[in-house]
């Protein structure tokens, strides 16, 4: 079976979709040289559908909105996660509101692709953010695939979706490879989570690359605690029914989330679980601390503000005991 890397999965999804739908085009910075390997080979195949942009993130994000209103399906690639906050207004206040403000006259099918969010060792404090919670909070469709197969399927669905969708690809997952049969690659619907590992004692909801960390912890604790690992895959829409079904089985919940603690995805999941799910013990979350800044240049400091396996182990043990 061929090995598919996460980056190659993104490239393959985009190539397949551009082949299938002539309205799909891609724009962003340095695409010709495919710095993130997403656009490799595209310029040769689709010379008039790869728009290499100057450094004008706000301009080309709004440009994509207009092109989408005009019947195209733009895919916008950004090199740095924080750039998404530079264009937060253009995504959340323009692209995401035009359909509503027009009473349904227009649609805005833009995909915003972040091939590399989270910690980039050595890249400084302005390159290591995880702003996914902000977009989910504002009601922008947000997905965060953990595996190459999911990256392919969710990216494809994002492009086909008739609304703006942000695709977060966690940096630590980009190098991941997976045995796949190419014929099995298929679109994955937004808002459908997946149980990655079944268990009976506790549900760990893990986001993005932390899914793999959670699976490793589940292995580590196998003799002691039976851990179920749930990957929501998309944050808005969110698979509340899938999570509830898992918690119904285990009665306990730990959230493992690389976002900041205050108002983060972990906070939302815990609040919903407390209000609506049957829990045998108080839930816990393992997140970045409040106000965390990953400085990117000092590994000791960087690791101190990112959720760790050890923290997850401690949280699982505490929840299971209570």
């Amino acid at each position: 079976m061929p090995k598919l890397s996460y980056a190659k999965a993104l490239n393959r999804a985009l190539t397949d979709e551009m082949e299938r739908d002539p309205d799909v085009f891609v724009l962003g910075e340095d695409l010709k040289f495919a710095l993130n390997n997403v656009t490799t080979g595209l310029l040769d195949r689709f010379p008039d559908r790869v728009l290499e942009t100057p450094l004008s993130e706000q301009g080309f994000t709004n440009f994509a909105t207009g092109a989408a209103m005009g019947g195209k399906r733009p895919v916008v690639e950004y090199q740095i996660p924080f750039l998404l906050l530079l264009v937060l207004e253009q995504i959340a206040n323009q692209a995401n509101k035009f359909r509503l403000m027009s009473g349904g006259q227009v649609k805005v099918p833009v995909t915003y692709l972040l091939p590399g969010t989270g910690w980039r060792p050595g890249w400084g404090a302005q390159h290591s953010d995880q702003p996914y919670g902000v977009f989910a909070h504002l009601g922008v469709k947000t997905v965060i695939p953990a595996t190459p197969t999911d990256a392919y399927g969710l990216f494809l669905s994002a492009i086909r979706d008739d609304d703006p969708v942000v695709v977060f690809c966690p940096m630590p997952a980009l190098a991941m490879r997976e045995d796949v049969s190419y014929v099995d690659l298929a679109p994955i619907p937004l808002g459908v989570g997946r149980v990655r590992r079944t268990g009976t004692d506790v549900t760990v909801l893990a986001v993005g690359h932390l899914v793999h960390e959670a699976l490793a912890v589940a292995d580590e604790l196998a003799g002691e605690v039976s851990v179920e690992v749930f990957d929501p895959r998309s944050l808005h829409p969110f698979d509340w029914a899938g999570l509830a079904a898992s918690v119904e089985r285990t009665g306990r919940l730990v959230v493992f989330d690389d976002g900041n603690r205050f108002c983060g995805v972990g906070a939302e999941v815990l609040a919903t679980a407390a209000e609506e799910m049957r829990l045998a013990a108080p839930p816990k979350r393992v997140t970045r601390p409040d106000a965390a800044v990953v400085v990117g240049c000092a590994p000791e400091l960087d690791l101190a503000v990112q959720p760790s396996r050890a923290q997850l182990v401690a949280a699982i043990q505490a929840v299971v005991k209570s």
């Binding site: 994000t61 440009f63 207009g66 989408a68 209103m69 005009g70 733009p74």
Partner: peptide
């Protein structure tokens, strides 16, 4: 910029 993208499309 929205108009520019629309005009391009």
């Amino acid at each position: 910029a929205i108009a520019t993208g629309l005009g391009w499309a």
